[in-house]
């Protein structure tokens, strides 16, 4: 087990290093120049600025400084937002994204497990048909369409009631009203995907030998459902939690934009559009570390839950692809 965990950790560290290096060199391959946005400055001031940001040193030295700073958790200062360090930006805006993401993940996992189990239980009856159709629609409709529709629905609701039941957009720290709809929209795609997965896994379990044995022993249906079926069927759901978290993180970029939520995703997109080097590098590495850490955690967790994984890691781990 220790070897398995060590392997996973090493793997994560390597991926992270690769990501950081790729980010660094990609940033420096850009024809644009981080100081180009400064209004015409005299060569001396320019030299000073370059020295301030370390841009006058050779590439490898800059790389060394970059990695060194990163190891100390220092991501530098934003080029476009004066006097704001990347750490400040992350510290200020990431918690908002995280709150939204965690809530979305909660909706998605709970909803997915419950709907999946219920639909499998009602196989080939109307709840099953309804949910199968709903799932395929939710998987096929892009998140921003749902976000737009949700906003329209909120406006309609507010007009029907005559007062602001839910805010159409915006964010207030700690306000659940502002989080509710965006997090639901954010979790919807993953919810649908997990429902589908849970349903097929549940269907498989329901035909398993040990379930038949349990029935033959005369166990109560509820006990079979909770103890034998649900617990076993949940296992595959754990495997896809890694990709699910990645999906929710990137999905957050859209939701934060549509609902005007000041999360890190929104700042990241903005930084890319403004070519704010340090913010892009810092947030990329931060996001990368975050995702890699969570995926690693999920892998280890799964290894703990299911010993088969440690022995044959290839068989059960699957799924991937863009986004």
């Amino acid at each position: 087990m220790m070897r398995f965990i060590a392997g996973r950790v090493l793997y994560g560290v390597f991926t992270l290093w690769f990501l950081a290096t790729a980010t660094f060199f990609a940033m420096h391959a850009v024809p644009g120049d981080p100081l180009a946005s400064e209004k015409a400055v005299s060569p001396e001031i320019r030299r000073n600025l370059e020295a301030r940001y370390g841009l006058d040193k050779p590439l490898l030295t800059q790389y060394g400084i970059f990695i060194g700073n990163m190891l100390q958790g220092d991501f530098g200062i934003s080029f476009t937002q004066k006097n704001r360090s990347v750490n400040d930006i992350i510290r200020e805006h990431f918690p908002i994204s995280a709150q939204l993401g965690v809530l979305a993940l909660l909706w998605a996992t709970f909803g997915g497990v419950v709907f999946g189990a219920v639909t499998a239980y009602y196989r080939n009856r109307w709840p099953d048909y309804v949910s199968v159709v709903a799932v395929i629609i939710c998987i096929s409709v892009p998140g921003f369409v749902f976000a737009a529709l949700a906003q329209l629905a909120i406006i309609g609701l507010n007009e029907a009631v005559g007062k602001d039941v839910l805010p159409v957009a915006g964010w207030e720290a700690g306000s659940f009203r502002h989080m509710l709809v965006p997090s639901l929209v954010l979790g919807l795609g993953t919810l649908a995907y997990l429902t589908r997965l849970m349903r097929s896994s549940m269907l498989e379990i329901m035909d398993a030998d040990f379930v038949r044995t349990a029935k033959a022993k005369g166990l109560a249906t509820t006990r079979i459902f909770w103890q034998h079926q649900l617990r076993n069927a949940i296992l595959p759901v754990v495997t896809v939690l890694g990709p699910a978290i990645a999906g929710i993180t990137t999905g957050g970029f859209v939701v934060e934009q549509v609902f005007a939520i000041p999360g890190l995703g929104r700042y990241f997109v903005q930084a890319v559009q403004q070519l704010d080097y340090t913010v892009i590098m810092g947030t990329t590495v931060f996001y990368g570390a975050f995702l890699i850490f969570l995926v690693m955690l999920v892998d280890i967790l799964y290894g703990l839950i299911d010993p088969r994984i440690r022995l044959a890691p290839e068989k059960l781990r699957q799924k991937g692809g863009p986004v």
Partner: peptide
């Protein structure tokens, strides 16, 4: 394991 969106941006 590489995050797609980050890679895309790079």
């Amino acid at each position: 394991a590489l995050p797609f969106l980050l890679f895309m941006i790079l």
